[in-house]
Design a protein around this nucleic acid. Sequence first.
DNA 1: CGCGGAGTTGAACGCATTCAAGTCTTGTGG
DNA 2: CCACAAGACTTGAATGCGTTCAACTCCGCG
Lengths: 256, 256
Amino acid sequence: MAEMTLDRAWPALFPLADMQRLCGPDPPAVLLRPRQKLAFDGDGGAGLHWLSSGFVGQYRLERLGRRQCVGIHLPGDCVDLAGLFLGRIDHHAEALGPAEVRGLPRERLQVIEAEEPWLLETLWRASMIEAAINRYWVYRIGRLGGRARIANFLCEMLVRLYARGLCTFDRFELPLTQTDLAEVSGMTAVHVNRMLSELRDEGTCTFTQGAVRIANPPELFHTGQYWWDYLYLDPELHGEISERVAAPRRTSSRGA
Amino acid sequence: MAEMTLDRAWPALFPLADMQRLCGPDPPAVLLRPRQKLAFDGDGGAGLHWLSSGFVGQYRLERLGRRQCVGIHLPGDCVDLAGLFLGRIDHHAEALGPAEVRGLPRERLQVIEAEEPWLLETLWRASMIEAAINRYWVYRIGRLGGRARIANFLCEMLVRLYARGLCTFDRFELPLTQTDLAEVSGMTAVHVNRMLSELRDEGTCTFTQGAVRIANPPELFHTGQYWWDYLYLDPELHGEISERVAAPRRTSSRGA
DNA sequence: CGCGGAGTTGAACGCATTCAAGTCTTGTGG
DNA sequence: CCACAAGACTTGAATGCGTTCAACTCCGCG
């Protein structure tokens, strides 16, 4: 790791292709059914696992079983960075829809350390961005009202998926139930339902059967008070998104 | 960095002594007055700064100026890990009381990389624990009611300070105003005040003039529903804290 | 056909906010 | 030393946002 440099910003990158290559000729893939818990041998420190498709949520439990979702992994994210470096995890994780996880066994990690140390930098950077996302979630839940909270979260999902080329800007798959959304946003499922119908009635966006249609992106970003600086996208992408959401945001009742 | 190992948990450690040594013969210390903003040349990627005394809060702003505190640094914490590895920061930071920051200039970072690579592991581990703390804050704000939220936060401050030998278990300095507490816990200053007086009247703890007295630690941990697994303390410390808070938690009205 | 999970809606309740007034503390200048 | 101002803390009352409880529909599936 001699050439590690600490003094510049790395461009955002999506290590999926490299991951795939490093998995070797016979990639040990694990298929997860919806609601299935992720469990790895020893639960921490056993290797490096990443999502090749699907969504995974991280949860902490309250005393009487109520859950708070503290993070969501999208395709391309590593799902056990915390366990890898801390030796155990303080939360549990489960698949939200059907998902697929691939793992690098421990032996291969040695190979990476020896032969491709720059990938460790990538992992480090990825974990720092994850931390920034966690901080943003604190802000979202702590300071935004119900409707803004939902809108804000949908914006984050949209931008994170879009940044990886996994959706267009007017629609994306999100295999969550309204109960899941409640656990994400620190609210009740009932209230989530009401906020979603408000967004629908205003002509901002709709959330049905595991997919979000964004009728009016600028409006969505406005009601969500969303700003995506914390995702550390590269400048071109940042500019492109800016253009898409900085528009007039007229609702359907008044013509453009 | 040839001897880096990825496959075990490192013991929790407090890099202050090493930091002090690495700062060299003429440590560039910066004194911060209360409310003073931390600003470093270039705001990110310019070096490594850590708190030698005092408290620093990280904030994100809502559209109309309301602030959410998304993290608090205690003495011994690095205050710009995010900026160092991501090149810029997505929040701002300011001293809560009088504080003192020491910095390693960029040249010295090269020295560390070359001569003491194990310190980079320590930094990495520290940043992972910070991320775990951020996740816990999401849980606290998302799932706990007002009184529990305050109690829970005070528990975290107590344990983090105690783990570094910076306080006893029945009292610690916390140079925050009730408004600061509100920004930490996603509530109103008025409501924080009411919750604090409830805790006081119950004989759990008092929070006055920048210090917390814990009259009944077990009661505090119980009302806060606090569990400190996410801090990754070493086992002895963990056990010691367990003993201190797993007691009868009688209030003063009934003798032991 | 019936079950269960997800979504929807109404009504009552309660926790937290908001507004407002007032006290206490602290620091500053006359 | 006192007067004054500013900020922190405290308390009351009204409002409102979100929860809670409950009933009901819709849909996929056995």
